[in-house]
Write a protein that binds this DNA or RNA. Structure first.
Lengths: 152, 152
DNA sequence: ATAACTAGATTGCAACTTGCAACTGGAAAT
DNA sequence: ATTTCCAGTTGCAAGTTGCAATCTAGTTAT
């Protein structure tokens, strides 16, 4: 494996980590993917401190990952919902969860995301080549964009 | 989307985040995937403080994500290498990086991982159904393991 | 041997972040 | 009018982070 890509300026990872790279953001997102959307719900389910939750939620909203909506019928209530940008974090979240399940947790995760169509659990998140083949680390190499072949 | 899976005991995400859920671990892993393996290299490339780097490396080693090998020829030198467990974090890392590239960073990431075989950049990390179909959030539902259909 | 060099790790201190609990303030319910 | 509820803020103690200087073990040079 060549020693390339030591260039932090041209990597999306730092910006991603700045937004969701702390202990709680992913847990909040997970809860949101499970349908939670109220402050007190997050509080009860996650066991996070109030101030930290408030801080993280407002950061997630600031970063456009969630949106904050005041309810019309009961204006005390606020709902936090995922934006498209937030929903797009699902693959990363699932990849992490599956990894944690494989290596960290003794027990299989439950419940699990299933395809509505066939009611089967989703496949593990994997790396795929441009043509869809599944592909592993040893079959990969770092390439400068300019050196890439052109898609057929 | 049903409100299930509020059960933190049966979810791999918390254990994953405990191991790699801080600002630096992923950056260290990224550097490792790029071929770096020495303390001073990480230090120079990442701009991390010495003590934090030492702390994170030893945690990654403790957690079995990296292994620490003393070099036989020059026994001052130590190399940090990914274990299989560490390599298995690549999908999660790439999913995050791709997300950061799409939403955070203005610029496309570079360099990029390419298939050795066809020299094309890898596909975006996505969610796939059991049969390999690509599948989105709205086509998914949380299911208890016991309620899943059986694989044909 | 001694001195200088290197990679890796440790220590001390200041700045920031976290967690807990008590409190505020507006909005419904009684 | 009072109580309860939801969301969020404030104050303070404890923990974590970042930086600089220092330490240690093994390596090369004299």
């Amino acid at each position: 494996m060549e020693k390339l890509c030591d260039n932090l300026e041209e990597c999306g990872l730092p910006s991603a980590l700045e937004m969701v790279g702390d202990r709680w953001s992913f847990m909040i997102l997970r809860a949101t993917f499970n349908g939670l959307c109220h402050f007190e719900e997050f509080l009860n389910v996650l066991g996070i401190a109030r101030n930290i939750l408030a801080n993280r939620l407002s950061r997630l909203v600031e970063d456009g990952i969630m949106q904050r909506e005041q309810m019309a019928d009961d204006r005390r209530k606020v709902e936090y919902r995922l934006t498209e940008k937030g929903v797009d974090l699902l693959p990363a979240l699932l990849a992490l969860r599956q990894w944690g399940e494989k290596y960290g947790l003794g027990v299989p995760s439950n419940p699990v995301l299933a395809d509505r169509r066939d009611n089967l659990a989703i496949a593990p998140i994997r790396i795929h080549a441009a043509d869809g083949r599944e592909i592993g680390w040893h079959e990969l190499q770092w390439r400068d964009k300019s050196e890439l072949g052109k898609q057929g």
